[in-house]
Design a protein around this nucleic acid. Sequence first.
DNA 1: GTCTATAATTCGATAGAC
DNA 2: GTCTATCGAATTATAGAC
Lengths: 193, 193
Amino acid sequence: MESVTGTRERIVNAGAELLRRNGYTGTGVKQIVEAANAPFGSLYHFFPGGKEQLGEEVIRTSGMMYLALFEIFFADEPDLIHGIEACFASAAETLKATDYADACPIATVALEVASTNEKLRIATADVFTAWIETGAEKLGKYGLGPESARRLTIALVNSLEGAFVLSRSLRNTEALDVAGASSVAFARTLLAS
Amino acid sequence: MESVTGTRERIVNAGAELLRRNGYTGTGVKQIVEAANAPFGSLYHFFPGGKEQLGEEVIRTSGMMYLALFEIFFADEPDLIHGIEACFASAAETLKATDYADACPIATVALEVASTNEKLRIATADVFTAWIETGAEKLGKYGLGPESARRLTIALVNSLEGAFVLSRSLRNTEALDVAGASSVAFARTLLAS
DNA sequence: GTCTATAATTCGATAGAC
DNA sequence: GTCTATCGAATTATAGAC
């Protein structure tokens, strides 16, 4: 009932924002504690494993927060197509509102560590696995078989992640608009099969 | 007619491979010249602009090489659907053959620099623009209108880039398989409209 | 063009007083 | 738990001999 934001929490939050925008190797630990308004020593007090331990926690927590966002969109949505369209429209809005900075919280790090840091690679894999499994469970409510629901979920993540790459680079939301349309087309195909 | 690989070319090639796998901030210039078997001084002889200039050249050249790969798949392919399926199947094969290292040559860098380095961000944007415009021109031959051809091309890149993120992280090709299927579904939808 | 030495800075991480 | 000082190794980049 006190301390709205502890030092440890501020470090994780600042780390999440910096890793999302600048990547893992592109972000320094000193940069993180400064942004968190935390003393440097606190970083190694709360994270004895150093940058890697902080990185892993950032990946897992922000990955789960992003999943919660997805679940909200489909919580009370009776129509699958509307839910998909709302997801991509919301992603486009957020991206534009943050000057094309806030896309996927872990994609940049995921690509950076895929071939270089096995512990962090596994953290990103666990997040993506949770997205796919939880998403498939939710989308299974719309009259799709288990395998179709899983494949549709993967297709949604594919299109979203890829559109984030194009949209951030090109600084426009055309790719996200197309991603919504192509995802809807795949959903209709699966619903009709 | 001589010198199969000059020093400058070896530096660019080594830089391309390292940037693709480890990213821009994750790759050191010493690491590049060492991999290229080049003297350190040669780097700043051929690239007075240092790491950034080399990075820009790597982005542009490997981006164009990847585009050439795409063009080969559709050069003598009479069927659009077959061409799409071949693209994703080939990407999956390459990825698996390289232990999930060789995916998109510029995606990691594109995400890293999108919010941090405007010159390199523009280089990635130029590459993606070339992909979209050239792709749209090629796919326009299959009975699609200009706008549909452009949107299908963007959808293909979306799905491919996103599936690369998932496949490299999860170390399997399921996402690439789904990406092929969802892209085919979108192509059929556009062909039928 | 090649090569070496080194400058100048930043990196992640640690020690130890408080 | 906070804070500072600092270490050693890395980073990019430059100078200058050959």
